[in-house]
Write a protein that binds this DNA or RNA. Structure first.
Lengths: 178, 178
DNA sequence: GTGAAATATGAATCAGTATTCATGTTTTAT
DNA sequence: ATAAAACATGAATACTGATTCATATTTCAC
């Protein structure tokens, strides 16, 4: 399947260094077959970013579902995110590269995520589960923590993600607790 | 000067969409002149990342210099970082793109920064200025906050950076305070 | 079983652009 | 003032790789 081949190739070599021939070879098809399924080289890339959006939302909402309160949701969410990055590093790299390859897709991805996050924080504040504060700035700051810990500790394997998540959550818990 | 022209062109269009001819035109020189000063298209890019490293370190150490304690240093540092991103957006974008164009330069940039940051946090912990915790994870988490707030609020102008820094610092202060 | 539609193939096209280089021009040292 | 060194020029080179397309092959409806 071309989409999976593209995930692998783009994730390993990056967009610029990957050729349509590479994608086709990885997918065990002829070069021209690519264009039966996708308009252009960029098209799969966008598709992968969209897929990552759906997946991330699912992973995160599954992880957080049933958390008794926002702080616990933060802990579970951070751990799940790190695990997801470790499991699908290629997809994660592709989203980051989308910032330069397909800026619209990149912006949509994070803007949508941030809006939902902000909403959660506002509810939590209203429920008295976290200290009052600017939910928009907090959402982006917390996403920044997750992204950077993911980049540094989850992307290349070898790190103890439970530990990283605990240490990261320590900062978040005290940062947000009422 | 070719380096400044490259900062502008790469910052605006990104690496792939910029041609040597673009750089030369922006610098008011002939195309071939570029190769008197740089080995390859990538060479200026690396040069710009190195420059950004020096500049960031200077900006941050100037900002933090004289802070009475680590928490105040965090506040000043975050504000200074956001201001720097707003002032040199092109340079900032270039560093981010370096992740894909020149991964070694990118890694060096952040690894070096993180090591210094970690060191500061360890000293602060020893001095009792912040609660005990894992300095390495904290350093990357705090860098993540700054990066993401910079991306979202400083890069495109229009935001009230004092306010963003204050809101962001609120999270950090409570997250780190003893 | 047959023809039409859908899908697959990969050689050829075609455009773009990094890099080179033969040829000026300017600067510097004496 | 002059020759060597340094710097500048941009047309030509050399190559890469996205996209197209004429030609199979397979699938499917009847």
């Amino acid at each position: 399947m071309i989409l999976r081949a593209a995930e692998k190739v783009f994730g390993e070599r990056g967009f610029a260094a990957s050729t349509i021939a590479d994608l086709a070879r990885e997918a065990n098809t002829a070069l021209g077959t690519y264009y039966i399924y996708f308009e252009s080289k960029n098209a799969v890339f966008r598709e992968l970013v969209l897929e990552m959006g759906t997946l991330t939302r699912r992973v995160m909402s599954d992880a957080v579902d049933g958390a008794p309160n926002r702080l616990e949701a933060e802990r579970l969410g951070l751990r799940a995110f790190l695990g997801f990055v470790a499991e699908r590093p290629a997809l994660y790299r592709i989203v980051e590269e989308a910032r330069f390859v397909d800026p619209d897709a990149y912006r949509d991805y994070f803007t949508q995520f941030a809006a939902a996050y902000q909403d959660q924080l506002e509810r939590a504040e209203a429920a008295g589960e976290i200290r009052p504060g600017n939910a928009e700035v907090r959402a982006w700051a917390l996403m920044g923590i997750a992204k950077n810990l993911g980049d540094q500790f989850a992307l290349n394997g070898g790190a103890d993600l439970d530990k990283i998540a605990d240490e990261g959550f320590d900062l978040i818990r005290n940062g947000l607790a009422p």
